[in-house]
């Protein structure tokens, strides 16, 4: 139990240092742009692929389960839209990014720790926590919403594509479905979750990387811990945010 408090304390102190006094704005801007590329743009491929396929599968599943004539044909489009916007894009994609981006961050920072590169920064008088972690947090908070929007768009598009190809419902019915009872607030809700998850993934992964010690083996362990804890916190916060915002 004591260990939990220890981690929470050390995590808070790290985050505090991250947000205290950046040295030179121009350098942070340069790193921010690099991180956007590393964290965001390099994930577009996997996000697009996953989203399209999930959209397709949700459409097929829904169609095959609504043989009942009581349910209108637009249910397919409606269901795809709700599942994608409310849960799949913000939460499941965040879990996938926790795996990809989180392990990447933890191993990058962890390697810098065990090869004394972080000590080298500290000796020079650089605030190593801010220098390494702040650009990652800001880049993720900036770029994740775009990834999630792309994911939403492609997921819904995937459902439409498969409807058109297989004829499970007409494209008109599908389009009617995705517009039916649409509440713009659901997008806001998804974006709030996305920003929170971006913060969770980057800070937790940085934390495990930053406090790695010992050998390369330890870096592997930090990277696993980063993914596991980011995922657990995403699930927990998802529950809390849903409770707070939607209900």
């Amino acid at each position: 139990m004591g260990e939990i408090y220890y981690h929470i304390g050390r995590y808070s102190m790290l985050i505090f240092r991250v947000f205290s006094k950046p040295e030179k704005f121009s350098i942070y801007r340069k790193n921010f742009v690099q991180e956007i590329d590393k964290i965001g743009l390099s994930s577009i491929g996997i996000v697009s692929l996953m989203s399209t396929f999930i959209g397709v599968v949700i459409a097929l599943q829904t169609a095959s389960n609504i043989d009942s004539p009581l349910l209108p044909a637009y249910t397919v489009g409606f269901t795809v839209r709700q599942s994608i916007i409310l849960e799949f894009s913000p939460t499941i994609i965040a879990l996938i990014l926790a795996g990809k981006v989180g392990s990447n961050i933890a191993s990058e920072i962890g390697t810098m720790r065990v090869t004394e590169q972080i000590d080298a920064l500290d000796i020079m008088g650089v605030n190593s926590a801010a220098y390494l972690i702040l650009p990652k947090i800001l880049a993720a908070i900036f770029i994740f919403p775009f990834l999630i929007i792309i994911s939403m768009f492609l997921g819904i598009f995937g459902g439409m594509l498969i409807s058109w190809i297989t004829g499970i419902v007409t494209v008109n019915d599908y389009i009617y479905g995705i517009q039916y009872d649409f509440k713009p607030f659901s997008i806001v809700y998804a974006m709030i979750k996305t920003v929170v998850f971006a913060f969770v993934i980057t800070t937790i992964s940085s934390y495990f990387g930053y406090f790695s010690k010992g050998s390369a083996l330890e870096v592997g362990r930090s990277s696993t811990a980063a993914v596991v804890y980011s995922s657990v916190f995403i699930l927990l916060l998802n529950l809390i945010l849903t409770q707070l915002i939607l209900i």
Binding site: T111, M112, T115, E116, Q117, A120, D122, I123, M124, G125
Partner: peptide, 15 residues
């Protein structure tokens, strides 16, 4: 620290 130069056991260059 700005006046300290340090050579680490492993070099510690930024990869």
């Amino acid at each position: 620290r700005k006046n300290i130069g340090m050579l680490f056991q492993g070099g510690a260059l930024f990869d």
